[in-house]
């Protein structure tokens, strides 16, 4: 029993330990570490949509940007409470996904991918044109958040921001862990693996996909709200194609359809990006490209499968030796 629970919660305990260790080990890089946490939330949202439900999208940034602008505007004009802002961001992301999903979820494959890119581009263009509201290309400025839960002020070094982002990422992680084990989560995997069969067992495949896309949009909206609140700035970049594409690479790197895969992929991508770009600002993409190629060829289920793969290799080696 203990062993079973041990293996079940070991990754969660490890993640908390890493977060605490990182906080003390890199006290002057908290802004960067916070960016990793926010990206983890975005990549988790993509994992639900792409990894579990099999909805091919290169436009997850649309909902991220919607959440960021909604939370930013809400803080400036209505109420600067962080948690309320998160809810507004989630609602904005979910609403956009629900609306776009009505059309998007009727399509598949390449058509779907192109349309998801188009939605993000349209959002970006709207934000660009509505300069009076969004600040256009200059970005949305003047976001001043109240203390988290009325207790913790956002500080200059970013300690509050770090723990706030960590808490939100942890809540999202737990929520998704429950979701993917639920009947709903099982049915999403079913739709991913065999949509014809899901129809034949009487499942409303379209609405199931729509629900998954909307939920994923809500979580992406939370990630966007986090970035608006912590960096106190929202730029048009939040809608960018590059962001959607990077999120997808992080997910593939770590392993799709595995929540910890999304976490690992994000951490490794961001860390490699950070160090490789510092050493060689022009060729850092080469390192990422090589890693993605290696993963796709040798570990198609992602880096999350590296430990079991090594274990198998070691076992095989011993067999060969004996």
């Amino acid at each position: 029993m203990l062993r079973r629970y041990g293996s079940q919660y070991a990754p969660a305990v490890l993640m908390i330990a890493v977060a605490v260790a990182a906080f003390f080990a890199f006290p002057f890089n908290l802004a960067f570490l916070t960016r990793i946490l926010i990206m983890i939330v975005l990549v988790l949202s993509l994992d639900l949509v792409l990894g579990y439900a099999g909805i091919a999208t290169l436009g997850q940034a649309a909902m991220y940007g919607a959440g960021a602008y909604a939370a930013g505007l809400f803080a400036i004009h209505v109420w600067a409470d962080p948690v309320a802002g998160l809810l507004i961001g989630a609602l904005a992301g979910a609403a956009l996904a629900a609306l776009a999903g009505l059309a998007l979820m009727r399509t598949h494959g390449l058509t779907l991918i192109m349309l998801t890119i188009a939605v993000a581009q349209i959002c970006s263009e709207i934000a660009n044109r509505a300069r009076d509201i969004t600040g256009g290309a200059d970005g949305l400025r003047g976001i001043r958040m109240q203390p988290v839960l009325g207790i913790w002020e956002f500080d200059f070094i970013g300690r509050t921001g770090y723990w706030y982002a960590f808490a939100v990422a942890a809540v999202v992680m737990v929520l998704l862990a429950v979701l993917v084990r639920s009947p709903f989560g099982l049915s999403l995997r079913g739709i991913h693996q065999s949509p014809e069969r899901m129809l034949a067992i009487g499942a409303p495949v379209y609405w199931r996909r729509h629900a998954a896309y909307t939920l994923g949009g809500g979580i992406a909206g939370i990630a966007g709200a986090l970035t608006a609140q912590i960096t106190q700035l929202v730029s048009l970049e939040t809608f960018s194609f590059a962001l959607s594409a990077e999120a997808m690479i992080m997910l593939i790197l770590g392993g799709t359809g595995r929540l910890y895969g999304a976490v690992i992929g994000t951490v490794i991508f961001m860390w490699v990006h950070h160090t490789a770009a510092a050493n060689d600002p022009f060729n850092w993409l080469f390192v990422i490209g090589a890693m993605v190629l290696a993963v796709v060829f040798f570990l198609p289920t992602g880096l999350i499968s590296l430990p079991p793969a090594l274990k198998r290799l070691a076992k095989g080696g011993r067999h060969a030796g004996s």
Partner: peptide, 21 residues
Amino acid sequence: ENLRLPILEREGRGFRMFRRA
């Protein structure tokens, strides 16, 4: 799991999100 899916759909539980399948 292959058999769990049709039973859950038949019982109309496919949208349940907060229980274990």
